[in-house]
């Protein structure tokens, strides 16, 4: 018994009191910021492993395709930097595309959130996760959301085993051909109304696997996505802040 008390005392309080407040180390690559400096645009575009960088009216980076490897930042340090902002979840796919000169936090558009989401899931939310070709890093981070440090369960949000008990589906991984049918069956088994959340670059765009003959992303065709959570893997705080803003509790991230 004394030993148990000793263990507990040694650990002290482990939970993060306010999940909207922590500051991550400056090395954390959360959100890209593109300066107005002139560089060799062709070289910048081609250094990206996943074609996340493109030129429209200026250089832009698609966080839904970015694997956060930082290659562009190291090759063009005056042009690209990544800030340690982890509140990067959004419900508009086009908002993940960061334009040149833009340095503002990502928003969750309240007008796009279906009415029933707040009224039904505002107090209690149960999610079912599907790993469809995920590499086990985003999966481990989603597990970490309910560990004693991040403790998402205090907000009434938890993971469940059965899709019948779930209010929504969270997908990680680029959706392999072999998992396409199982993903559809699991999604169909969740009662309406339901949330659909894509977690991680692989799920949002396929990431480095985009275009692979072993994928089948047709499940996503025509589906309304309630939340995009970028990252490789997604940081637990990114997920928690995103889901809290989507369902209530905090007004904006």
């Amino acid at each position: 018994m004394l030993k148990e008390i000793k263990i507990l005392r040694k650990h002290g309080k482990q939970f993060i009191p306010d999940v909207t407040k922590p500051v991550l180390p400056f090395t954390f690559k959360g959100r890209p910021v593109i300066s107005l400096k002139r560089v060799d645009e062709q070289a910048l575009v081609s250094c990206c492993p996943t074609d996340a960088i493109s030129v429209e009216s200026g250089i832009q980076i698609d966080m839904g395709k970015c694997t956060f490897c930082g290659e562009c930042m190291f090759r063009f340090p005056d042009k690209i930097k990544f800030v340690n902002d982890y509140k990067t979840a959004t419900n508009k796919r086009e908002d993940l595309i960061i334009q040149v000169g833009e340095d503002k936090p990502l928003k969750i558009d309240q007008s796009l959130i279906r009415k029933e989401i707040k009224s039904l899931f505002g107090r209690s939310l149960r999610l079912r996760e599907i790993s469809a070709g995920g590499d086990n890093s985003s999966e481990l981070e989603l597990n970490a959301t309910v560990n004693p440090n991040f403790d998402m369960m205090r907000f009434g949000i938890d993971w469940v085993a059965s899709p019948r008990h779930a209010d929504g589906i969270v997908i990680t991984g680029p959706i392999s051909k072999n998992m396409a049918e199982a993903t559809q069956i699991c999604y169909d088994a969740v009662p309406d109304p339901k949330l659909l959340i894509l977690v991680g670059t692989d799920a949002i765009s396929g990431g480095i696997f985009a275009g692979s003959p072993a994928l089948d992303r047709s499940f996503l065709d025509g589906k309304h996505i309630d939340l995009f959570v970028p990252g490789n893997p997604v940081h637990p705080l990114t997920f928690i802040n995103g889901i809290l803003t989507l369902t209530r509790k905090i007004k904006s991230q």
């Binding site: 790993s131 070709g133 995920g134 991984g173 680029p174 392999s176 051909k177 072999n178 998992m179 199982a182 480095i208 696997f209 692979s212 003959p213 072993a214 994928l215």
Partner: peptide, 9 residues
């Protein structure tokens, strides 16, 4: 189930 075609890529 997780096959993503890594060796081909």
């Amino acid at each position: 189930w997780q096959h993503r075609g890594i060796e081909t890529l």
